[in-house]
Amino acid sequence: MPKIPYQQAHSLSRIALTRRHRADEGFRSVGTASLLVVIVVVLFGAGFMLVARSSPPVMQPIEFPHFRHAGSVLEGGHEINCLYCHTYARRSPVAGIPPLAKCMGCHRYIATDKEPIKRLTEYWKNGRPMPWRKVHDLPDFVYFSHERHIQRFVFQEGQPVQQVCGYCHGDVKTMKVAERRRPLTMGWCLRCHEQFQDTGSQTPAPAQDWLIEPADVGLAGPAAHRGVPRNAPSDCWECHK
């Protein structure tokens, strides 16, 4: 059975036409019946992956505009570093939501007349945390560590933060309300991890598919691989405990 090339499964046509998969050759040589079966399977797979790829729209207490905070100055953003707000990511398995105090650090003075900011201030005055909802949720038996990924790629290898975060979170700086753009499935995780088990190319091959273009983050070319050992674990117990 051919592997379902869900990686590029934006549409059926792309699966059928663009992939350099051996399955393509298979189509010609087998009879119509098997082709039918394959198409059904691919349709099902593509449909599943499309559903799995991005999250349903998430209703947040405030429509937080990521593009305004992290986006390019040219487009009216402020180019704030991801780790400025999501400060836990570099030292905890959980990236976390910035504490209200951090928001208020700026919004005590900035844009105080806007409706969302007023609501924000209200929460602050009542001493109640914002009831943010999860956008990227993993099954409960998955133990993913933000800390390890940020430490490795940002601090040990020196890659740009937005690019590193973007591996899994997509190009958040263009989003209005954050949404999930990557499947976050186990096979998806493993593809990257497998690439990091020997000294191969600088960036993981599957990762290239979802990499944010360096130009987008105002950097020239991928950052150098600084002799950080490429020993990404592929051990089940690394994530399932």
Partner: peptide, 25 residues
């Protein structure tokens, strides 16, 4: 089942924690 509850479950959020209080740590 994976019991993924995107958009439903709340994230741990603080108002003004001490520096050493880190969710997940």
């Amino acid at each position: 089942n994976a019991s993924i509850e995107e958009g439903k479950e709340q994230v741990t959020a603080y108002v003004d924690p001490e520096d050493y209080v880190i969710p997940g740590d």
